[in-house]
């Protein structure tokens, strides 16, 4: 079996995989990092979104081998170093942007990518960005609020730091 190595949340990892092993399977079944979820088999629900080399991707639609040598970031690596919630995670809690929690890791990873590209998104831009993330619980209302709020907080911090 071919072996693959990559950096996941800053940690060098490697493992034996098949050609058909998906990145999400490598994360969940070999690394036992189960925060990244699988909610569909047609690449639409977005529960599996992680970052590969700084960009959000659906880890169910990329082979582990294709991520060889890449920097992968998952929900397990999002919190602050001291274990407290990041601004974005905290906004999800503050605004009740999650219910069952299953889509949440993908939502957070997707939203983090948006805020990196567009620190000041409009509500419409947030809603359009979330096209690839399905949530069945929240009706999106509070997810959108949480992302807009996190964006505001992050902009405020940036101003304060200048």
């Amino acid at each position: 079996m071919p072996s693959v190595s990559m950096v996941v949340n800053g940690r060098q990892v490697s493992g034996e995989v098949e050609g058909r092993t998906l990145l999400v399977e490598f994360l969940r079944e070999q690394l036992r990092m189960t925060g990244t979820h699988v909610g569909c088999d047609t690449s639409q629900c977005g529960a599996c979104v992680v970052h590969v080399n700084g960009e959000s991707v659906k880890s169910c639609s990329i082979f582990a081998m294709a991520a060889s040598g890449a920097e992968v970031a998952t929900i397990e690596g999002v919190a602050n170093a001291d274990g407290t919630l990041s601004v974005l995670q905290q906004a999800f809690q503050d605004h009740h942007g999650l219910q069952c929690g299953f889509c949440t890791p993908g939502m957070v990873m997707s939203a983090a990518d948006l805020l990196k590209i567009n620190p000041n998104p409009s509500e419409t831009e947030v809603r359009e960005w979330l096209e690839g993330n399905i949530c069945r619980c929240t009706g999106y209302h509070n997810i959108v609020k949480a992302i807009l709020s996190a964006a505001a907080t992050l902009r405020g911090e940036a101003v304060a730091a200048e």
Binding site: Q44, S56, V57, K58, S110, L114, E131, G132
Partner: peptide
Amino acid sequence: IGDPQVRNR
């Protein structure tokens, strides 16, 4: 096309 994650790949 698709969604942001699809467009990233």
